[in-house]
């Protein structure tokens, strides 16, 4: 088992169309680090600067926004699902 990370459409140009990758467990920062190492240019899309996500990037652990958890320090276990979701508005 590993951690599944879901890649949204706007980022799939960087991943050759891959919509899901697996990474080892750790915390959210480490999981995203792993994704960034694997794909060129990902780092710039996700992070404004080291340790600070871009304003329009939302990260979910299973079904919870990490801002309700421990943000980048949230622990991720084997079998967990991490989703990268662009922020969207509605009504």
């Amino acid at each position: 088992m590993a951690v599944k990370v879901r890649i949204p459409t706007p980022l799939r140009q960087l991943t050759n169309g891959v919509d899901m990758i697996e990474t080892p467990a750790g915390d959210i920062a480490q999981v995203l680090q792993h994704v960034c190492q694997k794909f060129d240019g990902m780092d710039k899309r996700l992070f404004k600067q080291p340790g600070e996500l871009n304003r329009f990037v939302n990260i979910y652990l299973n079904d919870e926004d990490i801002r309700f958890l421990e943000n980048l320090a949230t622990v991720v276990k084997d079998g967990d699902d991490v989703s990268i979701v662009p922020a969207i508005a509605g009504g």
């Binding site: 706007p10 980022l11 140009q13 710039k44 899309r45 871009n54 304003r55 329009f56 990037v57 662009p86 922020a87 969207i88 508005a89």
Partner: peptide, 10 residues
């Protein structure tokens, strides 16, 4: 399209 492919900005 609704988000920027570079920065996810609207």
């Amino acid at each position: 399209v609704h988000v920027c492919e570079v920065c996810f900005g609207p």
